[in-house]
Amino acid sequence: MTKDMNQRDFGTAPAALRGGARESFGVPMMVLCGSYLGFGALVRESDLAVWHGLFSTLTAWALPGQVALVELYSVGAPLLVIASAVALTNARLLPMAMTLMPTIRGANAPRWVYYVTAHVIAVTGWAAAMRVCPTLPSEQRLAYFAGFSGTLWCGTMIATAIGFALADAVPAYVTLGLVFLNPIYFMLVFASDLRQRSRMLALVFGAVAGPPLYLWSPDWSLVVAGLTAGTLAFVLSSKYKARS
């Protein structure tokens, strides 16, 4: 019998954990840490302490929401605004967690382990697990995901601290570049995801509505832009789908 080339086996769950940790090093780790360098610099330039940045990366670990939070905090937005903007930004984690769970379930782990592991669900590790985990024996899947994403998480903690330190140590021009990393990184991440009409429309409407709404209300502009532009994109693409 020929062995299926697409099947992989680390042997044991602890070996899969180490294997996942090893495989997290590469371009995804570099890009993610690069963007967290930018976050660390943003924290420094927003007159916050390094502990604030580290605390945010430790407890939230979803960069778009972290950047939105720091930006809103520095314009003095009230807590309710911050909470709604972060919640709307990160709602995408819900369908991601839902699709990931059946893929990594299978180890004889108690339920709470999945709730703990859920904290490290984010785009990079999610994409890797959705690709690799179905090829592994079921008892190694959770371990692989935890090893992969847990290592990314540790890397971003270090990158946050380094970015914070760099922002003060390098010439002002380089600090500009570090802070500029944040919008550029997200812009490109979204530019690679333009296949779905509704999401492409949402991006365009949001980008057009964002700046003028900010002039109208620095606090509420993000929440209002997200809800109106997002809903408009959703409705228009549904109508288009229904017609064709």
């Binding site: 903007a85 819900l94 369908p95 944040n182 812009m187 949001g206 700046p211 993000l222 997002g230």
Partner: peptide, 19 residues
């Protein structure tokens, strides 16, 4: 969930354009 994704995308696009 498609609607949720649209709202999240629009909010982030607004943030990027603003930044």
């Amino acid at each position: 969930f498609e609607w949720i994704a649209c709202v999240a995308y629009a909010l982030l696009a607004a943030l990027i354009a603003r930044m």
